[in-house]
Amino acid sequence: MSLTKLIERLLQLVPVLLGVSVIVFIMMALTPGDPVEIMIGDQNISAEQEAQMRRDLGLDEPVHQRFLTFLGNAVQGDFGTSFYHRRPVSEVIAERLPATIELSLVALILALATSIPLGVVAAIRKNSVLDRLATVGSLLGVSLPGFWFGILLLMLFAVHLQLLPVAGRISYQSEIEPITHLLLVDSLLRGRLDAFADAARHIILPAITLGLPMTAILTRVTRTSMLEVMRTDYITFAEAKGLSRRRVIYRHALKNALIPTVSVAAIETGSLLGGNMIVETVFGWPGLGRLVVESIFVRNFPLVQAAVLLYAVTYVMLNFIADILYTVLNPRVKL
């Protein structure tokens, strides 16, 4: 892909982000509920004190004025101060982002590592017991509510078998000097196998819960596309040439069969962001998803606006990556 194409795609981000910020701002402004009222809770308070609190949060100005201020500051990378944390929103988000990235990556890796072999085996042994199991399993995988499945895993592995911890990212004893802020990576870079094992024990259940729907979808996609590819002429030709079945499947069929899998995976990674909100709550995972949900409930406008913008950028970039991967895997397609 040429550089101009890349720049063109990046420039397309500008109207998208502008649109998203307008929509988010308007939605937050229109949602009933007043952050000051929520903060005061069940207290009697004088009108002056209430006005003072509103002024301190910058809520005394009319909506259009607030929007322009927000936009002007956002362009300069200032997303405002969180109403509750009383610190810059970018700082609060940055603290929670690595946990979400780490969880999503592990979930993605787990999903790819299980779904592709499963899908391939299901396809080449079509109608076998294994194929049926994979089909039923993937149906269950997409339809099980993550919330329920997570708690089930907790009850089994943490409460009954006592093998894994219930919540958190790492035990407090395993302190690692951060490099990338991804604990699994940092512990390896620092040569701390104990900390790596500890972090892995914490991440395994949330990652399985988060990755399950994706595993299910990718298994089905891989199976279907593998079946289609196996019916194509060039595979028949390869078989007719007398190539070993192994060679036909892994060298000739798989590469083409994976094209849809990879692009679906890239797009589905975006949906991991949504799944994070639930999984992070169930497993007390200190990520961004949970923070955003909590912030929506208490009408923490600046934080929600910045986080949604971040989600939008991520989503657009993931789609972009999916497009690029598609062209790499399938040279017939051009962007």
């Binding site: 708690i151 409460v159 219930v166 919540a167 407090y172 709550t281 169930v282 007390g284």
Partner: peptide
């Protein structure tokens, strides 16, 4: 003393039952 944040009540109960908290 440690405050461990577990927002979901079913998970908080699980943490108590498993002896984590």
């Amino acid at each position: 003393a440690i405050f461990r944040i577990i927002p979901e009540s079913a998970s908080r109960v699980a943490a108590l039952l498993s002896g984590d908290v």
